[in-house]
Simulated scan of single mutants.
Amino acid sequence: MAITFDAKHVRLVKTGLAYFGGAVLLYGLFRLLQGIFAIFIQPGKSLRKFGPKGSWALVTGASDGIGKEYAYQLAANDFNIILISRTASKLEEIGKDLESKFSVQTEYLPIDFAANRDEDYKKIAACVDGKDIAILVNNVGKSHDIPTPFLITPEQEMKDIITINCTATLRVTQIVAPGMVTRKRGLILTMGSFAGLTPTSLLATYSGSKAFLSSWSAALAAELAPSGVHVDLVTSYLVASAMSKIRRHSMTIPSPKNFVKAALGKIGVYVGNTAGVSTPYWSHGVMHWALENLAGLGSANVIKVNKSMHEDIRKRALRKKEREAKKQ
């Protein structure tokens, strides 16, 4: 039996489609305005919300780059600082400089998180005991030495990435967070990566570790929110640092100083759809918004572009190694 439509039915269909198209357009406009507001206008929570002047901030991976900059900017905001990283001489020098410039107290612990020693975590527990730890910055991290296919990634490199990025972050947080819950205030910032937002070929283990931190951090945020403890995963794309091997910053690739300034100014501001995942630097925020809202980009396309980019980086790194080997 053939189905026929009269003029009235055609008008109803056209009207329905028009309303649907208008709703989609309005939603898209709302998401655009929401993104612009979050990236360029909306301020973050005040650091004073998490602890008074003279309370403490603990920063892991504090001897260089982003971690070192967190220490300086938190000290400038009148927090005493606990510095944790591998090299005692660097930590001692930074601690003395912070005390001189900002009149704060500092302590430091030289710890190699790759070793995963129980005695090191006992030292951290002893160090924080009795202190008002208002802020924890889980910054310590490790990536691959060069982009490498998973099947030929050295076993030790895989172990170090998982141990440093995941195990160390969880163990330090379990030591520090209970005090925050007792005091009913505190801030936990964990460094994330775009490699955790989109699967990144040739950095598979690193990408997986950052995806784990994203899920863990969002879950932890929901658990601790009733206790007044705020948890953010701080997501970044490229920052000029030792880990990224990028020396010069630009408008879209910030220096550690500019990145940390944005991170501390955008606490609790979210560009993407996942609560607790902050993308504070403006160009990174624009990229994050585009990945989630412009369907034409597509996950498969992003993975393909990432794969091609890291294959090129690997080729150049291997050629550099060859040239250096010939000089010896």
Results as ranks from 00 to 15, higher is better:
Ala325Thr: 12
Thr274Tyr: 05
Phe113Cys: 09
Lys159Arg: 15
Leu238Ile: 14
Thr148Ala: 04
Asp78Cys: 12
Ala242Gln: 15
Lys257Ile: 02
Ala38Gly: 04
Ala219Met: 12
Val305Gln: 13
His249Gln: 10
Val305Trp: 11
Thr163Tyr: 05
Val181Cys: 12
Arg31Tyr: 07
Asp132Pro: 01
Tyr281Arg: 03
Asn139Ser: 08
Trp282Phe: 14
Pro199His: 00
Ala218Ile: 03
Phe50Glu: 08
Lys45Gln: 13
Ser217Ile: 12
Lys326Glu: 08
Arg117Lys: 14
Met243Arg: 04
Thr4Gln: 08
Phe102Ile: 02
Trp289Met: 00
Leu170Ser: 04
Phe150Glu: 03
Ile66Leu: 02
Gly22Val: 10
Ala7Arg: 11
Glu119Asp: 12
Val231Cys: 09
Met251Cys: 04
His144Tyr: 07
Val234Trp: 09
Met251Thr: 13
Gln174Phe: 01
Asp129Arg: 15
Glu223Ser: 08
Ile253Asp: 07
Leu12Trp: 10
Lys131Asp: 05
Ser85Cys: 01
Ala76Tyr: 09
Leu109Trp: 09
Gly208His: 01
Leu32Gly: 08
Glu311Lys: 14
Thr169Asp: 03
Leu197Lys: 08
Asn139Met: 14
Pro110Arg: 01
Asp120Phe: 03
Arg185Met: 05
Leu187Trp: 05
Asn301Glu: 03
Ser63Thr: 07
Phe30Ser: 08
Ala76Gln: 12
Glu99Thr: 10
Ile253His: 05
Leu109Cys: 01
Lys53Leu: 03
Val137Asp: 10
Arg316Asp: 13
Ser63Ala: 09
Ala211Trp: 00
Tyr72Thr: 01
Gly196Asp: 03
Glu324Asp: 14
Thr87Arg: 14
Arg323Phe: 05
Met287Glu: 10
Phe37Asp: 13
Leu238Cys: 11
Lys123His: 03
Asn273Cys: 07
Gly61His: 12
Trp56Ala: 09
Arg323Leu: 15
Lys304Thr: 13
Tyr270Ile: 11
Lys49Asp: 12
Asp129Ser: 15
Val271Phe: 06
Arg316Ala: 13
Ala177Phe: 04
Leu187Gly: 12
Ile152Trp: 00
Ile146Tyr: 08
Gly35Tyr: 13
Leu17Gln: 06
Val128Phe: 01
Gly61Trp: 14
Leu12Val: 12
Asp120Ala: 05
Gly51Thr: 06
Ala125Cys: 02
Ile3Cys: 06
Trp56Gln: 08
Gly268Thr: 07
Ser209Gly: 05
Glu99Ser: 13
Arg171His: 06
Pro256Lys: 13
Phe102Asp: 00
